Amino acid sequence: MQLRKATMADFDQIITILKDGANQLAERGVNQWQGDYPSKGQIKEDIEQGWAFLAESDDHETVGAIAIVDGPDHVYDHLDGQWLCDTDNYVVIHRVAIKSNHAGKGYATQLLQAVINDVKDNRDEIDSVRIDTHEDNKAMQHLIDKMGFTKVGLLHGVYRPNETSYVYELKK
């Protein structure tokens, strides 16, 4: 698994991957990403800020997309909980999606592991990795737990009114 920084030339492909991800969530009865998030404006900002990446398999096929956002991330300004690390030196994993025709092949695990490894190997200034997911997204919760993250709290109504997200952190 390789991560390639996205450019504006990748915009349509990222939108397609994220819509595919939203469809997969809907098929599982998860009400995450069923509104206007992630928006085209958010994806444009991800690319412009250097946060958007495409996940490529070892045979160089694009299998997914991810945003890796440097802290501080104001999404977490109203965390109902407590961080493991009281720091602004963290990265956040957002907007993770694997194409449906590649689902179930371990790519999501490889994708998160690639981010964690990159932080550990190349980002000395980073103290932790943070991630959140919808309360009904059991598949992502399982993956996050499997990767060694600790659940540290909740977000209420950050992405959509009346929506709760579980928040996790992994100390470096």
Rank of each mutant, 00 (worst) to 15 (best):
L111Y: 05
G50D: 12
D58K: 15
A52M: 10
P72L: 09
Q24Y: 15
L3V: 11
A114C: 13
Y37A: 12
Q42G: 11
Y76C: 02
F11T: 03
A52R: 00
I93H: 04
A67E: 13
K40M: 13
A97C: 11
A65W: 11
L79H: 07
G81Q: 09
W83R: 03
I66R: 00
G106S: 10
K99R: 12
G64Y: 05
K19P: 07
V63M: 02
D58Q: 14
A6R: 00
P38C: 03
D88V: 07
D59A: 05
A6G: 02
F11D: 01
T16P: 07
Q24L: 14
Q32P: 11
S57R: 05
A103D: 03
A108N: 02
S39W: 09
M8D: 10
A65N: 02
A108H: 01
A65Q: 07
I93R: 01
D20H: 08
V75E: 00
I14V: 09
Q82G: 10
I14W: 08
T7A: 05
D58E: 14
T62E: 05
L84M: 13
I98C: 04
L84A: 10
S39V: 07
D59Q: 13
D36T: 11
A67C: 09
A6W: 05
I98M: 01
T7P: 04
I66Q: 01
A52D: 15
Q110T: 08
S57E: 08
W51I: 00
P72R: 12
E45F: 02
I47V: 04
A6L: 01
R95E: 12
V30M: 05
E48I: 04
